[in-house]
């Protein structure tokens, strides 16, 4: 069974997922970061594939993308780094990034190498459902990769149903009308939106992301979904880190305890 499906079958609540840009803060950081996240009880990791023009992301994630690109990170190098990662890492891993680098790598090569590294799913924010269903779905299925869609406060009920129908991993609930790295508290309006989706009783589990940055926002999000994703706050926590092990432990424990 796919590790993502397995995770949501064995654990229904408080799933902690962390996003980290590959190649940040150092070119070779991603595998040690994965190990520390797993050691500290993180349930799933989104590995960011850096892109020069990440239009759905805020300044912090764009900064981490630029550092990673300047460090020399590319899909080719990322796949080399992730070769053999499954000897050590057993939690689900998802690749997340914009479509252009994957197109240049060649979509079929990209899917083949993603699967070969033991990656379970892919999130491509700028690959719309229409393009996915018509041009990509068969190829994702062929390589046993789950495609994960985003839902936002603007997504209609009918579209959420369609997204639920074509998904079988989890649905990524974008917490507000915002790019990543927002700093506002979770407001009543958002809670209504989360409740609205929860009440739809979708077949896929729900994970909330964007603006989740500490214990308080994580716990609130987990009241409405199976778990939550922390990205920007984690990037800040390991920026210029002198001791990844300590900094990651400190950050993750601050969320969990």
């Amino acid at each position: 069974m796919n590790r993502i499906n397995n995770l949501f079958q064995t654990k229904q609540k408080n799933i902690l997922s962390v996003f980290c840009t590959a190649g940040f803060p150092e070119l070779n950081s991603i595998v040690p970061v994965l190990e520390e996240l797993q050691n500290n009880g993180v349930d799933m990791v989104e590995i960011g594939m850096p892109f020069s023009d990440p239009t759905a992301d805020g300044p912090v994630i764009q900064y981490s993308n630029n550092i990673a690109i300047n460090n020399g990170m590319s899909l080719k190098i990322l796949f080399e780094q992730l070769k053999g990662v499954r000897a050590k890492i057993h939690i689900p891993l998802v690749l997340m990034g914009y479509i252009n680098p994957a197109l240049q790598y060649g979509i079929d090569n990209f899917l083949r190498d993603t699967h070969a590294c033991g990656i379970d799913g892919i999130i491509i924010p700028d690959l719309p459902m229409y393009e996915y269903e018509n041009f990509y779905k068969n190829r994702f299925d062929e390589h046993h990769l789950k495609n994960i869609f985003l839902v936002t406060p603007q997504t209609s009920k009918e579209r959420i149903r369609r997204i639920d129908a074509v998904s079988d991993a989890f649905i990524y609930i974008v917490s507000s009308n915002a790019i990543t790295g927002g700093s506002a508290n979770i407001e009543e309006e958002q809670k209504e939106y989360f409740s609205r989706i929860k009440k739809m009783e979708l077949k896929n589990p729900l994970v909330i992301g964007f603006g989740i940055r500490d214990k308080k926002t994580f716990d609130t999000a987990c009241n409405f979904a199976n778990g939550a994703i922390i990205g920007t706050a984690f990037i800040n926590a390991i920026d210029k880190s002198k001791n990844l092990k300590e900094d990651i432990q400190h950050f993750i424990q601050s969320i969990k305890n």
Binding site: F51, D53, I69, S74, Y98, N100, P101, Q104, D126
Partner: peptide
């Protein structure tokens, strides 16, 4: 340039081999 996806459409643009603009 070569074909790729930038600013919401598939078009020709200048990019590295890795697809960075």
């Amino acid at each position: 340039g070569k074909p790729g996806v930038l600013h919401g459409s598939k078009t020709l643009f200048m990019q590295t081999e890795d697809g960075q603009v």
